[in-house]
Design a protein around this nucleic acid. Structure first.
Length: 231
DNA sequence: GCGACAG
DNA sequence: ATCTTGTCGC
């Protein structure tokens, strides 16, 4: 079991961990099969240390949800831009461990290598769980890009100041703000975009992320119980 | 010093 | 992230 405690870490210490882990990230073309995909997300009440983490498993390419894993935990590490992983990964790993079936690809709500040290939450999770992951974020954290055309499907590259490709800014829905897609671990930039575009079902957010968000939210509101549940 | 800043 | 009603546009 991957048991970790990121609580009393300082930012300098967390930075050292990111630099070491970055050496383990593998940005390679994902080789199928892709029969199951999953989405991970966190929900919490403002000013509370209690977080509700969840992972929803769905069949691919039908995107039909088949079950979800929900966990309630206490987290002390605060939200600091660039260090989201130290706050959300511990509970997410607990939800991950109680998943009866692991997906071929996990979509994490946040960035992958589109990060100051190329170590966003999706990459961090991928290395720890030795799992192929893709980062899907709603806002930019790091990088430069041109606004993609307003039509659904358009996309522009997200790069660093030196031109290194980090991901794509993807218009998942016409006339709606784009999402930021980047490889987490065991996936590459073009492949991540290709997989994610097959996860769009009429909404701005990809199904794995959208359903995970709905699940943790209902869990936080007491509508569904903790643990694993098949659908 | 100033602006940016995932969830 | 969460809170929260109406309002504007496709």
């Amino acid at each position: 079991m991957v048991m970790i405690n990121y609580n009393n870490l300082t930012i300098p210490e967390a930075t050292v961990i990111q630099r070491e882990m970055q050496q383990q990230v593998k940005t390679v073309t994902f080789k199928g099969p892709l029969n199951y995909i999953a989405g991970a997300d966190i929900s919490f009440n403002k000013f509370s240390t209690t977080v509700y983490a969840g992972i929803v498993l769905l069949e691919f390419p039908s995107l039909i949800p088949v079950g979800y894993s929900l966990v309630k935990r206490e987290v002390l590490f605060p939200y600091v831009p660039g260090f989201l992983a130290f706050r959300e990964i511990p509970p997410l790993l607990d939800a991950w461990e109680q998943l009866p079936v692991k997906p071929d690809i996990l979509v994490v709500d946040g960035h992958g290598i589109a990060h100051p040290r190329r170590m966003g939450i999706a990459s961090h999770f991928g290395v720890l769980a030795n799992q192929a992951t893709i980062g899907s974020a709603k806002k930019k954290l790091f990088g430069i890009y041109e606004e993609p055309a307003p039509e659904k499907g358009s996309h522009t590259p997200l790069t660093d100041k030196q031109g290194q490709l980090l991901g794509n800014v993807f218009r998942s829905k016409t006339n709606v703000k784009p999402i930021f897609v980047s490889p987490g671990h065991l996936a590459d930039v073009p492949g991540s975009l290709d997989i994610l575009r097959q996860c769009i079902k009429g909404y701005r957010l990809p199904e794995p992320t959208r359903l995970a968000h709905n699940a943790v939210n209902q869990f936080r509101l007491g509508a569904v119980p903790e643990g694993w549940s098949a659908l």
